[in-house]
Structure formats: structure tokens, C-alpha cells
Design a protein around this nucleic acid. Structure first.
Length: 314
DNA sequence: ACCTGTCAAGTCTGG
DNA sequence: CCAGACTTGACAGGT
């Protein structure tokens, strides 16, 4: 079986300034003309950074990557009238062609403000805006990608919150429903909670091992992985999992700079028993540097057989 | 050159 | 009902 490694968001070569940003407050401080000019500058710059990142990834044989949709600032803000797609269509198409041509797996993960099961109607509205925008990005790039979501709120109790998620999910447009995959979180919805929802909605689940260890379910890892991987049956890509090491014993929830390769090997042994190809997204503070270090350690200490820079066979 | 506080939005807890 | 914790990275303003 093959294990392919990937990383998240900010590559090392851009350290000290990746994307340019603009907050709503700064936006409102500008005149109408300045707003358009500034937004355009930022988006043009960020899209170029995104493209450079993909080129960098290709050079390093990284084919599995998560980008931040925040490269398009204020795109999902309800009071910012700006066409984020048409003026950049050619650029988006170029980026999408690059991704498809090199057979990269690229996705994105809306942040904590996207809460589909919120108790507040306006939050649900803005969450749907975020999902719709990501879908638009995928469409204009013509890429076949997922978006990763947490279940969200646990109020007033998990059961009601879970049902709210299911109800709102079912009302989403078909395209978006087919793009959403769900991830366990480290406080409210543990792996079995999310698995149940995924099985009911017939959508894939992403197991986050770090969250799982912070907030465990009563099930053996091997069995859990088997069931999680089943939710991916019929998909054109292998299941993906998220993996990271805790920052310290005190700060278990926070992400460490790097991966503990020995613990990672324990995980690989479980994966081997399950015996299915899998994509492992590393979520480390040191980003791609952590990926490259892990690869060096796995090659040297564990003598794993790498078929390229980021994929090994066990 | 460095340090600090702010930011589009979120949930949750405790007073 | 409100303040604060939680949390990321960029950036503006102050020293």
C-alpha cells in the first residue's frame, strides 16, 4: 500500500509574508476607487503566490496540498461588492490546468467561522456564502476537490446540534453536498460522532489523528480506520487523514513544529494492517519543512521505500 | 529593527 | 447580556 504525504498552506520559501490581507475595517477606511485598486493588487499578488507554491510543490514532488481560501480577502463578506471571479478567470484557469496536468490533490478547509449548524440564522447564511464561494473557486479552476468541514456548534446539546447539521446539509445544493467531507474536532464531536453523521449522509470522513487523541472515541484505531475508509468507497481519490504531533504535554491541542517520526511509524503500522492507500496531511507549524524532515527520518532510521520525495510504500 | 494590539466571522464559559 | 479565552498570520502604529 502507498502512503502519500502533504502539507498545509504556507510553504517555507515564503516565510515572513505569504499572502497579503485586508480587513474590513481597513477596507472601509479607503475611498471607493482605492478599495477596488487595493483588492485587485492583493488578489493578483496572492494568486501569483498560490501559483508559485504549486510550482514549488512540484519541484519537491509534493502532490497533496491544502490552500487557504483567505488568499481572496473579504470574498465572503456580505458588504463587499466586488467581482472575485471574472477578472481573474484566466489566472484561475491557468492554476487549475496546472493542478490537473500534474495530477495534484488540492483542497481547502474553511475556518472556524463557517458553522453550518449554528443556532443563529445569520451565521448559517454566512457559512453558506463561504461554501458557495469555495465551490465557485473549484468551478472556475475546473478542479475536482473537496472542502473539509467540522460539525460545528454543540449547543444546546450534541444530539440536537448533530440533527441541525444534518438538516442544513440536506438543504445545500447538490454540487456542494458532493464536495463536503467531515472532520472530527478536539472538543465536541469526536471521531465516532462524525463517523455516524458521515455514514448517514453517505459522505466521506477525514480522520484527524491529533484531534482523535485529544478527544478520543471508544473504539480501536484499526477498526475506526476501517470504518472511516469505507466512507470513501467509490471515490476517485484515496481517503485522507490529518496527522500532527502535540506541541507539548501541557499544550496538547496546539500543533508541534515537527512530527515525532517514531509515533508516526506506530501509526504507519496500523495503516499497514488496514492495507489501503491513504493520503496523510501533515499539520505542523513548520509546514513543508516538517514534511521534508519526516521524510529524511523515515528514509534514514526506518529505511522506508520511497517511490518519490513524498510517497512511500509499506 | 522590534514589540504590541487589531482584525470578517465563530463557540463556549462564567460572572 | 457581556467580557474573555480560544486561535492564525499579516500588518499598522508606536518605541
Amino acid at each position: 500500500m502507498k502512503v502519500r504525504l502533504g502539507y498545509v498552506a504556507i510553504p517555507y520559501f515564503t516565510r515572513g509574508g505569504y499572502f497579503k490581507t485586508m480587513t474590513y475595517t481597513r477596507y472601509t477606511a479607503l475611498s471607493k476607487e482605492e478599495r477596488k485598486i487595493k483588492l485587485d493588487q492583493i488578489i493578483t499578488y496572492n494568486l501569483n503566490q498560490f501559483y508559485r507554491t504549486l510550482q514549488y510543490n512540484l519541484q519537491n514532488e509534493v502532490y497533496f496540498y491544502r490552500f487557504s481560501h483567505n488568499m481572496i480577502p473579504l470574498a465572503t463578506h456580505k458588504s463587499v461588492p466586488f467581482d472575485y471571479i471574472e477578472p481573474y478567470r484566466t489566472t484561475f484557469e491557468k492554476i487549475g490546468e496546472y493542478i490537473n496536468y500534474h495530477q495534484m490533490r488540492v483542497d481547502t478547509h474553511p475556518d472556524q467561522f463557517c458553522v453550518l449548524n449554528s443556532e443563529h440564522e445569520d451565521v448559517i447564511k454566512s457559512s453558506k456564502r463561504i461554501l458557495k464561494f469555495i465551490d465557485q473557486l473549484y468551478q472556475v479552476m475546473n478542479i475536482d476537490s473537496f472542502m473539509i468541514l467540522h460539525i460545528g456548534s454543540g449547543s444546546p446539546n450534541k444530539e440536537e446540534a448533530k440533527q441541525r447539521f444534518i438538516d442544513h446539509f440536506k438543504k445545500l445544493p447538490k454540487r456542494i453536498r458532493a464536495e463536503i467531507i467531515l472532520e472530527n474536532d478536539d472538543r465536541t464531536f469526536h471521531a465516532l460522532d462524525v463517523l455516524e453523521i458521515c455514514e448517514e449522509l453517505k459522505i466521506p470522513m477525514v480522520l484527524d489523528l491529533h484531534h482523535h487523541w485529544c478527544h478520543p472515541s471508544d473504539i480501536e484505531l484499526e477498526e475506526l480506520l476501517c470504518r472511516v475508509f469505507k466512507t470513501w468507497e467509490g471515490k476517485s481519490v484515496p481517503p485522507k487523514v490529518h496527522y500532527s504531533s502535540p506541541k507539548s504535554k501541557k499544550e496538547k491541542r496546539a500543533h508541534h513544529e515537527y512530527i515525532d517520526y517514531k509515533k508516526f511509524m506506530n501509526f504507519v503500522h496500523v495503516l499497514k494492517k488496514v492495507g489501503q492507500d491513504v493520503d496523510v496531511m501533515l499539520e505542523c507549524k513548520a509546514k513543508d519543512e516538517a514534511l521534508f524532515r519526516l521524510v529524511r527520518e523515515l528514509k534514514f532510521y526506518e529505511q522506508l521505500n520511497f517511490i518519490n520525495m513524498t510517497t512511500f510504500e509499506v
